[in-house]
Design a protein around this nucleic acid. Structure first.
Lengths: 198, 198
DNA sequence: TTGCTTGTTGTACGATCGTATAATAGGCTG
DNA sequence: CAGCCTATTATACGATCGTACAACAAGCAA
């Protein structure tokens, strides 16, 4: 029983740990610091594995974006499930969860920022963003439907709330001193109330 | 009268042309493509001039951000001035101008994205963002005051509208297919009406 | 145990990065 | 015209980039 020089991991597990390492590097050093070597060092493995498992750095960042998006989506869904059955409470839980410390996080913004940079530089990646954002909007629209908003008004209300939440989230990440999560929640609640009253 | 190998430009003019070249490169190739050599090539000068005039690439990008911010601010002010004297019309002109093709532009988003990346990687640059965004919010708040919004409600209304406009602008840049400038304007108008009615 | 598959490492290569530096030359001053 | 100032160029250097590739070894199958 000699100690092995390295452990042979399941490919999926290795891919997962690489994506998590990428997210950490992105959060710490920003997009320009997310090199293959830095990510491999963070994950505790050799740089060559990035090519082996993902074929390239762009693909790894794209996969990381998708993975982080899944996590965020899961966290929001969890918040909705915990909110009980009242439609209005469910909607507010969804929105409020976006301002929780784990979501309105500068590191998470770094992941998004890096990905937006890829969207611009390489057009084909834009489809990934569109798909992810469409799903986000669909969930929001379903919650709005539950609140009794009539179908013709749903589309614009969905876009409005999504934009408002995105803007509040962005400012919460970039300038935490300007407003806090509670105020963001209060602002969102006021606007949502106005939308549902119409 | 022999043709000169290069023209000796006024330092301020050269700095300006370098910032404009940086914005173009950022728009075309994204943050990762904005290297000293690429920018110098775009500006039609030698790479060494970047160091000479700005001392480094980060400073050039920061200066470009400030410059582009000035231009955007000027464009919004111009829209307000053209709107006449009606306070409500002035506010809507300010907001609507944010969705104009020159502002809701993917290239402009690239500049912002690159800068947000710097904000994360190098904390001292965050102050520049805070200052710029504070000025933006101040202008918005002044327009809201003109509409007769009582002082205690101004702060939150300002943040709400700023966030909404930012979110709409972001989505307009990233996924032009989802909504257009006119729909963004209509959504903003509805929300603003609700805020002013309260 | 033996053999095979393949995850993993380490190294190496060419390209490109940011920046420092010396030489060049435009353009104004006297 | 002579002379200075400095914007500008061209080159060079070390570091780091992404990726390719061959050798190694972990772990399962037989």
């Amino acid at each position: 029983m000699s100690k092995p020089g390295f452990t042979r991991a399941d490919p999926d597990a290795r891919r997962l740990s690489l994506m998590e390492a990428t997210a950490r590097v992105l959060a710490r050093d920003g997009a320009s610091g997310a090199s293959v070597r830095a990510i491999a060092l963070e994950a505790g493995i050799s740089p060559g594995l990035v090519t082996h498992h993902f074929g390239g750095v762009d693909a790894l960042i794209a996969a990381t974006y998708a993975h982080v998006g899944e996590q965020v989506s899961a966290a929001l869904d969890m918040a909705v499930r915990r909110a009980g059955n009242d439609p209005r409470a469910r909607l507010m839980a969804y929105v409020t969860a976006s301002f929780a410390p784990e979501i309105a996080d500068r590191g998470l913004l770094a992941t998004w920022t890096a990905f937006w940079g890829l969207v611009i530089a390489r057009g084909e990646i834009a489809e990934l963003h569109d798909a992810q954002y469409a799903r986000y909007r669909d969930e929001l629209e379903a919650l709005l439907a539950g609140c009794g908003l009539r179908p013709t008004a749903r589309r614009r209300a969905t876009i409005a709330i999504a934009a408002l939440v995105d803007g509040l989230w962005l400012e919460l990440c970039l300038s935490p001193g300007v407003l806090d999560a509670e105020e963001a929640r209060a602002i969102a609640e006021t606007q949502i109330a106005a939308l549902l009253a119409a």
